Amino acid sequence: MGDSGSYHLSSLLHLVHLNQKLGNLLTAYQTVTLKNEAAAKKAVHAMKEYDEQLDKGFESQAMSR
């Protein structure tokens, strides 16, 4: 295997390493995205509950008049 063969092997190993890094990056991105989605759903749920509480407060004020 001459210089050309070792160059190709080195290039292949470099591509394998880059592929592993991209795989790790994708996994990290998916994890962050899922956490962000969960946080957004939780925030929307909290705002909906707060809106419902406000609505109940307005209804009780309207009935007491």
Results as ranks from 00 to 15, higher is better:
residue 61 Q to F: 07
residue 8 H to Q: 05
residue 57 G to K: 13
residue 58 F to D: 00
residue 26 L to V: 08
residue 27 T to S: 15
residue 56 K to N: 13
residue 14 H to K: 10
residue 36 N to V: 08
residue 43 A to C: 00
residue 31 T to V: 06
residue 3 D to E: 11
residue 7 Y to I: 13
residue 18 L to G: 14
residue 33 T to M: 09
residue 26 L to C: 07
residue 50 Y to E: 15
residue 57 G to D: 07
residue 22 L to N: 07
residue 17 H to M: 02
residue 38 A to K: 06
residue 47 M to T: 01
residue 32 V to Y: 03
residue 43 A to F: 01
residue 5 G to H: 03
residue 33 T to N: 15
residue 16 V to C: 04
residue 52 E to I: 04
residue 49 E to W: 01
residue 10 S to Q: 06
residue 22 L to A: 10
residue 62 A to F: 02
residue 35 K to I: 08
residue 20 Q to H: 14
residue 54 L to P: 00
residue 4 S to P: 06
residue 15 L to F: 12
residue 56 K to G: 04
residue 32 V to Q: 07
residue 32 V to N: 03
residue 55 D to S: 10
residue 29 Y to P: 00
residue 49 E to K: 08
residue 16 V to P: 00
residue 30 Q to D: 15
residue 44 V to I: 14
residue 9 L to C: 04
residue 21 K to W: 03
residue 5 G to P: 01
residue 41 K to T: 03
residue 59 E to F: 01
residue 45 H to F: 09
residue 12 L to C: 07
residue 2 G to S: 11
residue 24 N to E: 12
residue 23 G to Y: 03
residue 37 E to R: 09
residue 41 K to C: 05
residue 65 R to Y: 05
residue 60 S to W: 01
residue 55 D to F: 03
residue 55 D to V: 09
residue 22 L to K: 02
residue 18 L to W: 14
residue 35 K to N: 13
